[in-house]
């Protein structure tokens, strides 16, 4: 039960981080925290049921998560290289700026 509470807490922390952080790396960390929370929960429940299946599943799930995270990191790198920022707000403003520039060009 404690594990469940812990994982819930981790989940909350992860979401909090996602909501408040602007730096993509911090966002990534928050994502990882969420993934960790899920895995923790899985472990907790798997241990209740017993058997090896749960662990196998967990490993697969973790690997999937890792893959996705890796892709995100790749994108973050691209973003930093191409656009020069990893601030998510700046990124979205960048988009708006570009849109504004497009509009301006038309006029």
């Amino acid at each position: 039960m404690d594990y469940v509470i812990l994982s819930m807490t981790l989940l909350a922390v992860g979401i909090y981080g996602l909501v408040t952080k602007r730096n993509l790396l911090k966002v990534l960390i928050s994502i990882e925290i969420i993934a960790a929370a899920a895995s923790m929960n899985f472990v907790a429940f798997a241990s209740m049921v017993g058997g090896s299946l749960g662990q196998a599943f967990l490993i697969l799930a973790l690997s999937v998560d890792t893959t996705l995270t890796a892709i995100i990191i790749a994108l973050v790198v691209v973003a930093y290289r191409d656009l020069g920022t990893i601030d998510i707000w700046a990124l979205s403003r960048l988009r708006e700026v570009r849109a504004a520039r497009r509009r301006g060009k038309r006029r």
């Binding site: 993934a35 899920a38 895995s39 899985f42 907790a44 429940f45 209740m48």
Partner: peptide, 19 residues
Amino acid sequence: VMIVIASGFIVYGLSIIYG
């Protein structure tokens, strides 16, 4: 990012189901 969050949620749910 949204997909990963989703997958986190799903794994979370699956864990309970598995339990």
